[in-house]
Structures are given as structure tokens and as C-alpha cells.
């Protein structure tokens, strides 16, 4: 799983397989962090502005 585990070989199969995996994990991690970070920032902004800021978002068909 990691280059420091002894099963790891620097060959094409490891690079392609683990490359694909880590690519997906990083995308998901970045995505979740972006969403959580943005939500915290918006909440803090709302609170600073008197707590009325969150109604400006439309939720499309989910509401």
C-alpha cells in the first residue's frame, strides 16, 4: 500500500494500480475538505452578519 512496505516494488503494475487508488483518495479527500471548509467559513460569516445569510442559496429540486 505504501512504498515503504516490503511488498512494494517500483514496477509498472504498482505505479498504475496505486497511482489510480491514491488519485481517487486524494480527489475525495480534497473534495470533502473543500466542502467542510467552505461550510464552516459560510457559517462563521453568517454568524458575524447576524445569522441571516444562509437563505440566499437555492437548493434546486432538493427543497
Amino acid at each position: 500500500m505504501f512504498p515503504f512496505s516490503f511488498e512494494w516494488h517500483w514496477d509498472m503494475s504498482h505505479i498504475v494500480f496505486m497511482g489510480g487508488l491514491w488519485y481517487a483518495v486524494i480527489i475525495l479527500g480534497l473534495g470533502v475538505n473543500y466542502v467542510v471548509g467552505k461550510s464552516i467559513a459560510e457559517t462563521m460569516k453568517d454568524e458575524a452578519g447576524g445569522g441571516h445569510g444562509h437563505d440566499d442559496h437555492g437548493h434546486g429540486d432538493h427543497h
Partner: peptide, 25 residues
């Protein structure tokens, strides 16, 4: 709860990226 409201809204915003990654996986 404002933080949850924002979180769910923001998830929808970037859902295409998650959906594409999900399809890949």
C-alpha cells in the same frame, strides 16, 4: 442548523466530481 445547511448545499455543488470519481471506482 446553519452548518449542516451549508454543508449539504456545498456537497451538491461539487457532486459531479464525486459522481465521476465514483463511476471510475
Amino acid at each position: 442548523v446553519p452548518i449542516f445547511h451549508h454543508t449539504s448545499h456545498n456537497f451538491h455543488e461539487v457532486m459531479a466530481i464525486f459522481a465521476a470519481t465514483g463511476a471510475f471506482l
